[in-house]
Design a protein around this nucleic acid. Structure first.
Lengths: 186, 186
DNA sequence: GTCTATACGTTGATAGAC
DNA sequence: GTCTATCAACGTATAGAC
């Protein structure tokens, strides 16, 4: 792994654990095994580093979730896949998930351009529109549905992250929760 | 208002806008119209200030939400009241809501004792247990339901906070969303 | 690209007069 | 309780050698 990636990886680890404010760039460099100056060679400011890390992590999440969805399936299966993949990713990448949560409710979030936000959300939004058109999903504002779905997913991921459940128990909870969500929007 | 409250109020305003890390104690003191030393007279450290502010704000929210709930009503009405009151409070106290969100997904959250968390959540949890017992609510783990309800509420509050809706439109969305939530858990 | 050394402002916190 | 003055430590960022 090259130094640039190493820096992102270390920043992620420390940010998730201590938060942006309590993580000096010097510690990030140390953790990454590079000199202080090297960090600033790749990222002109700390803020630039934080934003780059967010975009990268969000990209990883989207890639994971949507590369595992088949357009051929029924709408319910599509939603179920998106749902389960998101939860899976969060559980397998706890630091990343924790970082995204922290970033999203921080003032940094306003620094992300609307296009960046929309591009990430576009796929799910399309599925929702499709479902409304085919009358599978309740005729409500699509962005409202999107928000409620996303909140539900983060909430469940949080729940499963902190609790100590066996893999079978986890799977059961995920399926039950999906049924609830599906009942909610159809 | 005495100085101690004035400090909390100023801290809230600045934290909500800039985050903990980008808000120095000196700015808080200035905004509150008190001397730097006075702040540290009331709160020994910055961390102590942040924690005190969280507990205070969370207390305000609980007070608002649950003082407006009548135990006499049907379970659906009780849940609806809790739901609507929570959203109302968030919309009328945007800085407070934003601060709680930020705090909850920050590493500071682990500094709050389990008892403090539980005491805040106890009332809703009781209603959920009651609903499960009377078979009004699906027989699922109560803390899971609680998490999903809370996520739903924060998600909707966030949605309404950023969008520009008329009061009538807002009310309509809130009622529709509650119906969805109620469908989900019953 | 990577390192070392360092500048320079900022910040949390204290001391002590009133 | 409240203020002013002050400090030691820290954190971001830069300069310049290799």
């Amino acid at each position: 792994m090259d130094k640039k990636e190493e820096i992102l990886k270390s920043a992620l680890k420390l940010f998730a654990e201590f938060g942006f404010h309590a993580t000096p760039t010097s510690k990030i460099a140390k953790e990454a095994g590079v000199a202080n100056g090297t960090l600033f060679h790749y990222y002109k400011t700390k803020e630039e580093l934080i934003l780059a890390l967010y975009k990268h992590t969000q990209g990883e999440l989207s890639k994971y979730v949507y590369s595992r969805v088949s357009q051929e399936d029924s709408l319910e299966i599509v939603f179920k896949s998106v749902y389960c993949n998101s939860i899976e990713w969060a559980l397998e990448n706890k630091a990343e998930f924790q970082f995204i949560q922290q970033f999203s409710s921080s003032p940094f979030h306003t620094l992300i351009s609307t296009e960046d936000i929309n591009s990430q959300a576009a796929i799910l939004l399309d599925f929702i529109h499709e479902g409304i058109k085919s009358a599978d999903i309740k005729p409500l504002p699509a962005d409202l549905l999107q928000t409620l779905i996303n909140s539900h997913i983060s909430g469940l991921a949080q729940y499963l992250s902190v609790g100590e459940f066996s893999t079978t128990k986890q799977k059961k909870i995920i399926l039950q929760s999906f049924e609830m969500l599906w009942d909610m929007i159809t």
